[in-house]
Amino acid sequence: MARTKTRATAATALTPDAVRKAYRDMLLARIIDERQWVLNRAGKAPFVIPCRGHEAAQVGWGSALRDTDFFLPYYRDLGVVVARGYTARQAMLALLGKAEDLTSGGRQMPGHYGWRERNIITGSSPVGTQVLHAVGIAYASRLRGEDSVAATALGEGTTSQGDFHEALNWASIYKLPVLFIVENNEYAISSPQSREMAVQDVSERALGYGIAGATIDGNDYFACHEATFQAAERARRSEGPTLLEFKTYRTVPHSSDDDDRVYRSREEVEDWKQKDPITRMQAHVLAEGILTKQEDEALWREVKAEVDEAITYAEQAPYPKVEDMYRHVYAE
């Protein structure tokens, strides 16, 4: 599973090329997301689970680790897998349930990522199960004397699951190299954070496990990248797991079947849109001269064209054969 190519850099040491790639990944995730909703409303895609608003957090942690590390994203983490090389074509093939979908051959709902070649571990819909898998993966790596880290993400609502507690407990007892990344967007579908926990910050809970914890501005790509990188380096030095909380906001409903108007005000959503992570990253790359305005406009055109091409490709791609549904229940 491990590949030889390795890439991990502190945020402060990121090259202009790396920043440009991060910005492009965030933008690609955003445009894929937007187009998926259009396809859903046009009746072409049954279900969309959005990443919108989380792009800085997701590309931030997805780009801060090594290729030999393990990635256990949750269903919202399109930005994480894009940072690991997942393409617009792949996203659209999964959206439409086509045979060529590399994560599941059209079996899973969109957003249930898994890609062995890139150390992205297959995920499911019951929330929080992957958090324990990260612990077992880290245990296995350490038993073999490898220095890889297992990073897993979840929403703040999932911290209510028993598996979350059991995983933090295991990882802290054995000082395992695990990063627990909570993308806190304030809502578990309609339930606000105050209905999921009595503390202000998820990261406060780290104290109860005797591990490191930190709350980070989840709309700041550089802060998310740096916190992940540093936590991973600590984990590699056998200093134990870290509970990272990236505070962010999903600026659209939970899914294409949700209506967020019943549980939050338009003013609140509008306030968060003003803090949009893409706009913020765009301002950074322009201010730092990493891209000129013209180059930025060209980049947006290029990404949109890439996503349009992906839709055309996925729409024309074949569905799986019916008889193939009987395959891969057990080893063949």
Partner: peptide
């Protein structure tokens, strides 16, 4: 759950 993770990693 931990055993599943171990199995996923060899």
């Amino acid at each position: 759950g931990v055993a599943i993770g171990m199995a996923l990693n060899g």
